[in-house]
Design a protein around this nucleic acid. Structure first.
Lengths: 159, 159
DNA sequence: TTCATATTGTTATATTATATCATTACAATT
DNA sequence: AATTGTAATGATATAATATAACAATATGAA
């Protein structure tokens, strides 16, 4: 079984717990405030296997009758993005939890067009190749966006 | 001078001409119809050095008093995308002309955060690195999106 | 011509995102 | 504790991006 795509029945609850704890630790270190609101947004995103749009998050926040408005969600998302706790999948206008918030890193997202799952991978090789290519063009890399859409193992192995 | 970022005063008009001719040839080959409307949209996008949003294109189409509506533009954009005549820059919700529509290819976009210019580059190395990384994850690559934001040579060389 | 299909026109609306200003919470200092 | 500056949230409105649905027209093949 490959490690990049989570198993269907792993203990998701526990991994969310620990991800949230890590997030809190990280914010504490940085003097950033992971308020209940922001924590809740992070939790909602972590809970989902597939990327969530801002309005999906909003719906979940308001499922119990609360009346949060779009700016509230977008602000929380901005905070989480800024601190690397979530990523934005540009090609889907959606957000996913970050697999390794602690380290600065460039991520390659493998987005399955069938199941919608998103795996975050990291490859020094790709980073270097991009750096090399950009340098040849006289370009200073600041923020790579790498999103590969295709099909994950589960979705293509039985064909 | 590097070839990836076009010079300020190259003969843009002529290169648009030839790009349009190429596009027509390509569509003819494929039995696709580059109608006046679609051709116009392509032309508008080619004319611009920076990526254009759909509504930017619309504005230019209607500058003379025409009354085209959003669906008209989006349809033309879809057609041009499908035939590889333009690319969509996901991280900017915007469109740029394709530098080499004739061949299927994966492009790496170098997007300058200062000038807004976008250079399209190609690197087998990157393609291979991505393929390798995806394969390790059991993933079948279909559509890579690679958009690097940073600073182009012109914008950082005098610092 | 006649038919089937592709393209364009038109209206309405969905979806995503932000501007703006008011209010409240926080936390550092006196 | 009162003061004050800043950060965070609340609330309303609206901007910007994108698509649904259906009507009308054009095009090419039989």
């Amino acid at each position: 079984m490959n490690k990049n795509f989570p198993e269907r029945n792993h203990d998701h609850g526990a991994s969310i717990e620990s991800a949230l704890e890590q997030a809190e630790a990280l914010c504490r270190e940085r003097g950033a405030r992971l308020t209940p609101l922001r924590r809740r947004v992070l939790e909602i995103i972590q809970e989902s296997h597939a990327p969530l749009g801002a309005y999906d998050v909003l719906q979940r926040m308001n499922a119990d009758g609360e009346r949060n408005a779009p700016p509230t969600v977008y602000r929380a998302l901005d905070f989480l993005l800024k601190h690397g706790l979530i990523h934005r999948i540009e090609s889907q206008k959606a957000f996913v939890g970050c697999a390794m918030a602690a380290d600065a890193h460039d991520a390659l997202f493998l987005i399955c067009r069938d199941s919608g799952s998103v795996a975050e991978t990291h490859s020094q090789e790709i980073g270097e190749a991009i750096e090399a290519s950009a340098t040849r063009a006289g370009f200073l890399v600041e923020m790579p966006v790498m999103e590969i859409s295709g099909r994950c193992q589960e979705c293509h192995e039985d064909e």
